[in-house]
């Protein structure tokens, strides 16, 4: 291994951070829509709710693959420690994603078992979300490692904290899903989405508050990061902006704006994401390995970077185009009907 001439780690941190966040947003609203689907009042509204994400769901899940493989490529040590450590949440997430993914086609084609596939879509979305929340919680808590390996048990990741983050993410994705539905539907269905959105927002705000207190209590280094002087001043915009966003979100869910609830939900996710990043920086395997220690070889990062910088803008362009094609309110004659 030659010492790296150029340090690609910051750039890869940005790309991967962006990729993971994009996944969280896109599959977040998609899984959230899946969960809210369970509460939809009747068959026509269920059809509309599902059709609002039918053309885009598999594109959204593609970001999950990119996040996983991107982690393997840019920070392989993190991948090989974290993945075995969250063996069961990943398993549960995958199985749940299978159910909710095939439910799109199966529910439509297999009408005599529609109730079963309704449940598969709704519970599959909820369980996948909860499992992702467990992964997040386990990540924040850190892993027991020896050398370059995870040395704990596959059950270590199930803790009260990770259960709580599982619930937190469930509310969070629910809020994103409600925001998406406000954007894509109208009339009574939109009112219904606003109402559910308000419920989710309450859950999200409680979760943000509890996690913000729980993590510094759990990890002295995080407490140090946030509450030491002068960090407490420099970082104060994070909670302040979050609080303002929360207020704005509440008002927009009660008001008539169709875009604001989704934008506000995204804003809350951005702030939470930044908050976690600030807490853990510069660790990619929390409290064990930094981004630089976990990075792949410079040649690996460079080789992938060339293509990524070229392809990612193109991907964003045509992904954007496919959203553009299906813009506007969801139509009953497009999609499964």
């Amino acid at each position: 291994m030659t010492p790296p001439v150029l340090d690609f780690v910051p750039l890869w941190t940005i790309i991967l951070g962006f990729g993971v966040f994009f996944y969280v947003l896109l599959d977040g609203f998609d899984l959230g829509v899946g969960m809210l689907y369970g509460f939809a009042p009747d068959l026509p509204s269920r059809n509309l709710v599902m059709n609002s994400v039918a053309p885009v769901w598999d594109g959204n899940e593609t970001w999950l693959v990119l996040g996983g493989v991107g982690l393997l490529a840019a920070f392989p040590l993190a991948f090989v420690i974290i993945l075995p450590a969250v063996y069961f949440p990943i398993l549960i997430m995958l199985l749940a994603l299978i159910f909710r993914g095939v439910a799109f086609e199966f529910r439509y084609r297999d009408a005599e078992h529609r109730t079963f596939w309704d449940h598969a879509f709704c519970y599959g979305s909820a369980i996948a979300t909860f499992a992702q929340g467990i992964v997040l919680g386990a990540f924040i808590q850190g892993f027991h490692t020896e050398g370059r390996e995870f040395a704990g048990s596959s059950f270590d990741c199930f803790t009260p904290f990770s259960m709580f983050t599982g619930m937190a993410l469930t509310f969070g994705y629910g809020l994103l899903g409600a925001g998406w539905l406000v954007l894509k539907t109208q009339g009574e269905l939109q009112d219904w989405a606003r109402q559910l959105g308000r419920g989710c927002l309450v859950g999200v705000l409680i979760a943000i508050a509890v996690v913000s207190l729980w993590t510094p209590l759990m990890q002295p280094s995080i407490a140090q990061r946030w509450f030491s002087w002068p960090n407490v001043v420099f970082l104060s915009p994070v909670p302040i902006i979050t609080a303002m966003l929360a207020l704005w979100e509440w008002h927009s869910l009660r008001g008539r704006s169709e875009v604001a609830p989704f934008a506000g939900a995204i804003g809350l996710f951005v702030m939470s994401y930044i908050g976690i990043a600030i807490s853990l920086w510069p660790m990619i395997v929390p409290y064990q390995f930094t981004l630089w220690e976990a990075a792949s070889s410079a040649s690996t990062q460079a080789f992938l970077l060339v293509g990524t910088l070229f392809l990612l803008p193109i991907i964003l362009m045509y992904t954007g185009w496919s959203y553009w094609v299906f813009r506007g309110k969801v139509r009953g004659d497009i999609g499964y009907h």
Binding site: T62, V69, G70, L72, A73, S297, T300, L311
Partner: peptide, 14 residues
């Protein structure tokens, strides 16, 4: 990972 991961990542990207 250093050898194979870019191939898998390029599969995703392309």
């Amino acid at each position: 990972a250093n050898v194979l991961s870019p191939l898998l990542a390029y599969e995703g990207l392309t």
